[in-house]
Simulated assay, not measured.
Amino acid sequence: MMTHDVIVAGERLTLHVQRAIHWAARRTVLVSDVHFGKGAVFRRAGIAVPSGDTEDDLARLDDLIREFAPERLVVLGDLVHGAATERSDWVERVRAWRRSHPHLDVLLIAGNHDRHFDVRSLGIEVVPDRLDVAPFVLSHHPSPHAGAYTLAGHVHPGVVVRDGWRRHRLPAFVFDHDVGMLPAFGTLTGLFEIAAAPGRKIVAVTPAGLVPVGSQGHRR
């Protein structure tokens, strides 16, 4: 399945195989850890990685916008990966993408990597720490907040799924009692393995679709 609905803090959220969440009640799409420009940073350091990661990630954002027609796109931190200049190819490409969606509200909750570049120069609004949109706190770091459910990124959560003798490391959505984490959206991002735990819901992102693999315990 390409989408999977979960109830979190009394709200229905649609998880998408493109590593995004659609919150229909607020006409909002959430993604995290896009890391635009990471490939360029690697190549400047002499690490051979293929180009085209920015184009791929922008195309995936366009697919989500076409599918859900949101009013708002919220990035839960680390939209960019590192320092860049006006001559960086990805900078103008992201600016052009932003201009192509003039009626879409695009907002970044600043993450630790975003300090290296002025994201406002891309035409994107920036909130420095968190955004309170009841019943959620939207943030980069997955810290609990009293009286609200946190939706965050930063960790790049993943899970190990075994298929017979084969072992697959896959991005995953993770929902605990008071904090939920999105998988990293960016193409060139790693994984931090999250173990199953009582009451924890894990939904793995596989090439064939979304697969719930964790506990189906009670959600707030």
Rank of each mutant, 00 (worst) to 15 (best):
M1C: 11
M1Q: 12
M1G: 14
M2H: 11
H4R: 12
D5R: 14
I7W: 03
V8G: 04
A9Q: 06
T14F: 03
L15W: 03
Q18R: 15
R19V: 07
H22K: 02
R26S: 12
T28K: 01
D33Y: 05
V34R: 00
H35V: 07
F36Q: 00
G37E: 14
A40H: 15
R43A: 08
R44K: 15
A45Q: 15
A48L: 13
G52N: 09
T54C: 09
D56M: 08
D57M: 10
D57H: 01
D57I: 06
D57F: 01
A59P: 03
R60T: 10
L61I: 09
E71T: 10
R72M: 13
R72I: 06
L73E: 10
V74H: 06
L76C: 02
T85R: 12
R87F: 13
E92T: 11
R93F: 00
R95W: 05
A96P: 01
W97Y: 12
W97G: 02
R98C: 13
S100P: 01
P102E: 10
D105T: 09
V106K: 00
I109Y: 00
A110E: 14
R115Y: 10
F117Y: 15
L122C: 10
G123I: 09
G123E: 08
G123L: 08
V126Y: 08
V126S: 07
V127A: 13
P128R: 12
D132Y: 12
D132Q: 13
P135M: 09
P135H: 09
V137M: 09
V137K: 02
L138G: 05
H140W: 04
H141C: 03
P142V: 04
S143F: 10
P144G: 05
P144E: 13
P144L: 07
A146G: 11
A146V: 11
G147T: 11
Y149S: 00
Y149D: 02
T150Q: 04
L151Y: 06
A152V: 07
A152W: 05
G153K: 00
H154D: 08
V155I: 15
P157D: 12
G158M: 04
D163Q: 14
W165I: 11
W165V: 14
R166K: 12
R166S: 13
R166V: 04
H168W: 14
F175T: 05
H177C: 10
D178C: 02
D178H: 09
V179E: 01
L182F: 08
L182I: 08
F185P: 02
F185G: 01
F185W: 10
L188A: 05
L188E: 07
L188F: 15
T189Y: 03
G190D: 02
L191Y: 06
E193W: 05
A195Q: 15
A196M: 11
A197M: 09
A197F: 09
A197S: 15
P198V: 14
G199S: 09
R200D: 05
I202D: 01
A204D: 04
A204W: 03
T206L: 00
G209E: 02
V211Q: 13
V211W: 06
S215I: 06
Q216W: 10
H218T: 14
R219L: 12
